[in-house]
Simulated assay, not measured.
Amino acid sequence: MKFKTLLASAAIALGLASGAFADGHEKTKVGFVYVGPVGDGGWTFTHDQARLAVEAEFGDAVETVFVESVAEGPDAERVLTQMALDGADLIFTTSFGYMDPTNNIAAKFPDVKFEHATGYKRLHPNVSTYSARFYEGRAVQGHIAGSMTESNIIGYIASYPIPEVIRGINSAYIHARKVNPDVEFKIIWAYTWFDPAKEADAAKVLIEQGADVILQHTDSTAPHAAAQEAGNVVTFGQASDMSAYAPFPRVSALLDEWGDYYIARTKAVMDGTWESVDTWHGIGDGMVGIGEITDAVPANVKEEALALKAAISEGSYHPFTGPIKKQDGSDWLAAGEVADDGTLAGMNFYVEGLTAEIPQ
């Protein structure tokens, strides 16, 4: 692990105190804690691109630092403590499992602002939470996947059984089944965000089970390589475009767009307007994107997918609109009823038609 720091010799040469301008005001120091390597090609890569966007926006007024591949647990507290001690004004903790460490360390450093991705706990006034409505992008993926499968079997590589991942599975399944009532989802839980070997093995098992479309909620490009080797198997980029595998097997992607949010929150710290808030944005707010839909997708399917994206973006359609039943057959949403954010945020059930069980 390493920190990206300003060279002390450069500061001395300029005759400045560390992190300060000639007029005496301090640079804003922004830290980022990553669960994977910045080169993962997916989740962490997109967060680091947003860090670079902060640097590009504010130039010499900011200093950014990051630590990559930080395990979710006690090691995260150690890293956060060191960042705070090193003078960070704002720290982004970019994985669900950093939720408790973020709040624990925030209590010890009340003057440092903390932003936690995908969590729901704001136990202190210096903690905010933010996430994206990834399920909106999963709906578009599901439409394409259900339209393109020939075996009627779609494989799904899932990371951890948390609400964010369960929402994604449900959304993709609902929209795949709308265009293909015979579709079946086979789900493998990898219990990792980033492990190319495990992700590749999961993809191969799903392909052996008949899946000709692979969806993933893990961060490496390994499933694309496995699909490419297998032949006629469709994949989708996760978090980033993963366009090295386009136009096939990767036919589109779910994009995480963090840059605007990171810039806005950094600016809020700089001008003293930062407040503790919950943020949950989607396609319409520009936090979720749909990667290029390649010509490997039939023209009519592409047109339908883009129309679905537009309807979600403008708010005329919600991916969880009834009638929808739960997996056990009980009623959930009546015809025309839209799921509330509270239920979605804590989603711990599958919708009707999914045959797998959610691990405990």
Rank of each mutant, 00 (worst) to 15 (best):
A202F: 02
T93S: 13
D260V: 01
F194G: 03
A264Q: 02
A71H: 10
K121Q: 14
L6R: 15
V67E: 11
G155V: 02
Q49N: 14
G284I: 03
A176Y: 09
T192H: 01
G119I: 10
L6V: 10
S243I: 07
A117Q: 03
R250M: 12
S220Y: 00
G119R: 10
A230Q: 02
Y160D: 02
V33G: 01
P181M: 14
A335D: 15
G39A: 05
P110G: 05
P196T: 12
V234H: 03
A305S: 14
D48I: 02
P181G: 06
D278W: 04
T129V: 14
G210K: 11
H47N: 06
G315Y: 13
S330Q: 03
F3S: 09
F92P: 09
M270H: 06
H47K: 12
W274D: 00
I105V: 15
H281C: 00
Q327R: 02
A53N: 03
I188T: 07
A239E: 13
K325Y: 07
H175I: 02
D23T: 08
V234R: 05
S276G: 10
M270K: 00
I290F: 05
N300K: 07
H217P: 10
Y261W: 15
D182T: 01
V140W: 08
S330T: 11
L333T: 11
A310K: 15
G336V: 08
A13I: 05
T93W: 03
T93Q: 06
E352A: 15
W274F: 09
L90G: 01
N104K: 15
A305W: 13
A76K: 05
K325P: 00
G342M: 09
P323Y: 06
T149M: 01
F134R: 11
A190L: 00
F349V: 08
T118N: 08
G73Q: 14
E314I: 11
M1S: 11
E72S: 15
W332M: 14
W43N: 08
G346V: 07
V62T: 07
P196H: 07
A190M: 05
L306Q: 05
D328A: 07
F114A: 12
V67M: 09
P37N: 05
A132T: 12
D48S: 10
T321R: 06
D285M: 10
D100H: 15
I214W: 13
Q209E: 15
L354Y: 02
A246C: 01
V70R: 13
M99G: 03
A226Q: 08
S316G: 04
Q141I: 14
A335C: 02
G36A: 15
E136D: 08
A239R: 02
V70W: 04
V165K: 01
V54Q: 09
K309Y: 04
V338L: 07
Y191V: 10
P323Q: 04
A246H: 00
E55G: 11
Q238A: 13
H25F: 08
K29N: 06
K4F: 09
W43F: 14
D111Q: 04
D278Q: 08
D340M: 04
S128V: 06
E337R: 13
I169Y: 03
E314D: 15
Y191E: 05
T273A: 04
G24R: 09
A11M: 07
T118Y: 05
A203E: 02
G336D: 14
F92G: 12
W274N: 00
V297D: 12
K4C: 08
W258D: 15
A222F: 06
A299D: 15
Y261Q: 03
A145L: 07
